[in-house]
């Protein structure tokens, strides 16, 4: 009898060797432990044994059953592990292959520069206003203290609109600088005024590496009881630092604009040659990025602001110029070709 038990266990062991899936395992389970299995038959016969034999055989039977169950259980675990390993194996892939990237575009370099400028001045408490590009002679020249015979008024310099209005004394034109916004704002508001305006201007230049008949400017205007030249220097110094980095060097260079007095051009140190002189800065060591100055009292008078009480500063910076310098562009025209290979590079 005992020997038979041993044999049964051996049979289970042999059967389990080839079992490598759940189905086979279930078959083995039912043939050795199911209702019709030999072990179960022996269990059923237990009642017919004599009273002193019954406990011993019963115990043997139970032990055998437990042993068989644990062998099957053990194999079940092995099969589970096998399955897991096969899955892992099957799912192994070449992870150097490209992922599915979202396809994103980007903003034009000029827009990026414009936003950066807007953010700097918003931080400084400036309000942002928009102005018209189609203006009249009065706002583009007269109100900005430009004399009637000034060369800038020439058709060689300024684009005029074909008679929309029949006023030959105040022709419509494309503004030659964003300073027209100054006039518009001051005509309709009393100080304190602290604004910037970003927009497109036009000059009748033949397009070349550094000229385009249309270009973009940021105009700044601050008018108050006690606005000083020092405030202007402070604002532009902060701007230069935020735009070009902490160690940027900058300077004011005396200049002439009809609408500011004193007037200056605003230069930053050439970051290509650091001042030694190179082709970018035309050997000067400095790069011009805009003009600035204190609002001329005549401009205040033209717009009806008390020029005795109020003072103000104004500045205009070239966005295209700043973009050109920042990205080291060789030619301004590349900005408006819209070659996607160029756009993708800088966005």
């Amino acid at each position: 009898m005992e020997k038979h038990f041993e044999e049964l266990i051996q049979q289970v062991k042999i059967a389990l060797i080839d079992a490598d899936n759940d189905h086979q395992l279930n078959n083995i389970k039912s043939s050795f432990l199911g209702k019709k299995s030999e072990l179960m038959n022996m269990m059923k016969k237990l009642g017919s044994l004599s009273a002193d034999e019954r406990p011993r055989v019963g115990k043997q039977l139970n032990l055998t059953k437990q042993k068989m169950e644990s062998l099957i259980q053990q194999r079940a675990h092995e099969i589970e592990k096998l399955k897991y390993d096969r899955t892992i194996q099957a799912e192994s892939i070449d992870l150097t292959m490209p992922g599915l990237q979202p396809q994103i575009g980007g903003l034009h370099p000029l827009t990026q520069t414009q936003r950066k400028i807007e953010d700097i001045f918003i931080t400084l408490g400036f309000d942002i206003v928009e102005g018209n590009e189609i203006e009249d002679e009065y706002h583009n020249f007269d109100a900005l203290n430009t004399p009637p015979n000034h060369p800038a008024r020439n058709e060689m310099d300024t684009f005029y609109i074909k008679r929309l209005q029949d006023d030959s004394n105040n022709r419509l034109l494309l503004r030659s600088q964003t300073s027209t916004v100054q006039v518009r704002i001051m005509e309709n508001n009393q100080p304190p005024i602290k604004i910037i305006s970003i927009g497109r201007c036009y000059r009748n230049d033949k397009p070349d590496r550094s000229h385009s008949p249309f270009f973009h400017q940021v105009e700044g205007l601050c008018v108050n009881d006690n606005t000083t030249f020092a405030d202007l220097r402070d604002i532009l110094s902060y701007f230069a630092t935020m735009m070009f980095g902490n160690d940027i060097e900058w300077r004011f260079r005396p200049h002439f604009f009809p609408f500011t007095e004193p007037s200056a051009e605003f230069d930053i140190r050439c970051f290509s040659c650091k001042g030694a002189g190179c082709s970018i800065c035309k050997q000067s060591g400095w790069l011009e990025i805009g003009g600035a100055g204190m609002v001329d009292p005549n401009v205040f008078d033209a717009v009806g602001i008390d020029s005795e009480r109020f003072t103000g500063y104004a500045f205009g910076l070239g966005i295209d110029r700043i973009t050109l310098l920042k990205y080291r562009l060789p030619d301004i025209r590349i900005l408006f070709e819209n070659d996607v290979r160029f756009l993708k590079q800088l966005c």
Binding site: P102, Q103, I104, G105, G106, L107, H108, L110, T111, E133, L174, R200, Y202, P213, F214, L335, F336, N338, V340, L343, K344, C347
Partner: peptide
């Protein structure tokens, strides 16, 4: 609006007014 279009794969272009 500009950001949305950028993230949808659009590149921004800037053209002449003329």
């Amino acid at each position: 609006i500009a950001d949305f279009l950028s993230y949808c794969g659009f590149l921004e272009v800037i053209n002449s007014s003329f």
